[in-house]
């Protein structure tokens, strides 16, 4: 079994994010980067599947970005990925172009399963996995909260607005992961030491032979602010009074 896990590096979600003063971007210079939390869940799931199979199965972590992306890929290797591929690209990419580049990696590697986060917590687009499934013409299961391996197939529980939906898909397939699929492990010291010796291939983006086609032009960014009354109440009676005025009046 070969599992491919595309990952994205994103600013640490605990940090406060603001737009730059001129609106040209996000003030990110001071921000530490991490593996997108949903991708970490995908990676963890891939590692667990391979550990359970106990054969020569492998988990391949993929990253697309600037050269220092290798730091996050080393983290992925320390968490248990078998090897990693860094597609070096210094241009900003929208989901369409990420999916097109990932398709080329999939065609090279021929995995049985692509596991990736349902969304990246920077652009929150929730598109890339579905785009990749469409470009490969593979079946897809998004928002997975449970994955069961069957013979040549998978059964996936999906988190939807209306409850947990269960799908069965033949492999190869693309599965995107939701929060409750698992709790990703921290890289152990032994894992970090091992990761240094694991293969990490760097591929210049030009080698993939894909001419980038921008689909999303960002005109400007602005920080979101809402002004709130911020009134501190002293008793339940005051709250009832406010609800009666504000809420009751709207009914």
């Amino acid at each position: 079994m070969k599992i491919l896990v595309p990952t994205k590096r994103v600013p640490d979600t605990d940090q406060k994010i603001t737009a730059t003063a001129d609106g040209s971007g996000v003030a990110s210079d001071h921000l530490p980067f991490v593996v997108n939390p949903f991708d970490a869940i995908a990676l963890e799931e891939g590692v667990r599947i391979v550990e359970k199979l106990g054969d020569d199965s492998e988990v391949i972590a993929v990253g697309i970005g600037e050269a220092d992306y290798v730091h996050q890929l080393r983290t992925a290797l320390a968490m248990g990925a078998t090897r990693a591929i860094c597609v070096e690209c210094d241009q900003p990419l929208d989901p369409w172009n990420v999916a097109r580049l990932l398709k080329e990696i999939v065609l090279r590697e021929q995995p049985d399963l692509v596991l990736m986060g349902k969304q990246a917590v920077d652009d929150d687009a929730n598109q890339t996995g579905q785009f990749l499934a469409a470009l490969l013409d593979w079946p897809q299961a998004t928002f997975a909260s449970r994955i069961e391996l069957l013979a040549g197939e998978i059964r996936v529980d999906r988190e939807t607005d209306h409850g947990i939906e269960t799908l069965r898909l033949p492999l190869p397939a693309v599965v995107t992961t939701d929060l409750r699929l698992n709790e990703p492990r921290y890289a152990s010291m032994a894992g970090i030491m091992k990761a240094k010796k694991k293969p990490l291939d760097v591929i210049p983006v030009a080698e993939l032979g894909i001419a980038l086609e921008p689909r999303v032009e960002v005109l400007r960014y602005h920080s979101s602010e809402t002004v709130r009354r911020g009134e501190r109440l002293r008793s339940v009676d005051e709250l009832v009074e406010r609800l009666r005025q504000d809420v009751g009046a709207q009914a």
Partner: peptide, 23 residues
Amino acid sequence: SSTFAKDIVPRAAAQLGGAMASD
């Protein structure tokens, strides 16, 4: 912006050239 649409609409978008904005 529901889980139904977030599942199927991006897949359709990729079949239509990938010009998509979410939410």
